[in-house]
């Protein structure tokens, strides 16, 4: 392979992982817009998506597609439970946002440890969706899972855009993000919208986990690194801008894959955090400007 082929090959895999970061980043934005909270349990949703699918598929021999569907619904439900059990009681007591953010971090640790106790500490993987040989573009190999990740992510981003633009519930969620009090005055049930935001973010995280696990692996403790990557994606895109976060995720994935190629895999996280620092120093509002 020539250097150009290697770069292209890296960019293809970067695009795939970037989509996943983007989905996680969108999850951050949806909750942040609805509540002002940075939900650090976002990574737990990603882990749970892959993990629940794995357990259903391998232990209980549930068909793959059904297992994935059940996992997404179950994780969305976990999101709602997190909102009701952890966030809402603090919200009602008018706790500072900082306290609520810490509470989500605590929830992340609890979910992680419960998973460890219920499953084990071994890495788990999922089969690829289609076991076909990769498509060759010259000497660059594109495997089908990457295509599933990219196509699946784009479909979700498109569906999400439609949801926010077309449906009354989507518009109401945007209204809550713009001006919570004005939304209350239109009789929009703001607290239901908050629960919905958690369900949506959790479901997105689960989908990201299911798409990604076949190419990587999942384990009880993969959540935090994913949460950090998604958080960086959201910062790059301008916090609170879902579609900015997706672009941010793509950018992060590409930078990381090039860093792995030229600097070695050991510096993958260093590259991601350098991008974060760069943005925090030079353009803290992100590419598209922060939403609030």
């Amino acid at each position: 392979m020539t250097q150009a082929d290697l770069v292209l090959q890296s960019l293809v895999s970067g695009l795939g992982i970037g989509c996943v970061y983007g989905l996680i980043g969108i999850g951050f934005c949806v909750i942040y817009n609805a509540s002002g909270i940075v939900n650090f349990a976002q990574g737990a949703f990603v882990m749970l998506g892959g993990m629940i699918t794995h357990v259903l598929l391998v232990r209980y021999h549930v068909p793959y597609a059904l297992a994935a569907f059940v996992a997404v619904v179950a994780v969305a439900a976990v999101g709602v439970v997190l909102e009701r059990l952890v966030v809402r009681p603090l919200w009602m007591r008018k706790a500072p946002v900082f306290v609520m953010i810490l509470a989500t971090l605590a929830a992340q640790i609890v979910i992680e440890r419960v998973t460890f106790l219920l499953v084990d500490d071994q890495p788990k993987t999922l089969p690829v969706f289609l076991d076909w040989p990769p498509i060759m573009l010259g000497r660059v190999a594109i495997n089908y899972q990457s295509l599933f990740i990219i196509a699946g992510s784009l479909a979700i981003v498109g569906a999400l855009a439609l949801f926010f633009k077309v449906t009354l519930t989507g518009k109401a969620m945007r209204a809550c993000a713009i001006d919570r009090e004005a939304a209350l005055l239109q009789a929009i049930p703001v607290s239901t919208m908050l629960a919905l935001a958690f369900a949506l973010s959790a479901g997105l995280g689960a989908v990201a986990g299911i798409l990604l696990t076949p190419t990587q692996y999942t384990a009880f403790n993969v959540g935090v690194p994913f949460a950090i990557s998604g958080f960086i994606a959201a910062i790059i895109g301008g916090f609170g801008r879902p579609f900015g976060a997706f672009v941010g995720g793509l950018a992060l994935g590409l930078v990381q894959s090039i860093a792995i190629l030229w600097l070695g895999a050991g510096l993958k996280s260093a590259a991601a955090l350098s991008v974060l620092l760069l943005f925090l120093f030079v353009r803290p509002a992100g590419i598209f400007g922060a939403a609030k």
Partner: peptide, 11 residues
């Protein structure tokens, strides 16, 4: 209709 109108500006 609150003081300052409370419209959803970006919408």
């Amino acid at each position: 209709v609150p003081e300052g109108r409370g419209i959803f500006g970006p919408m």
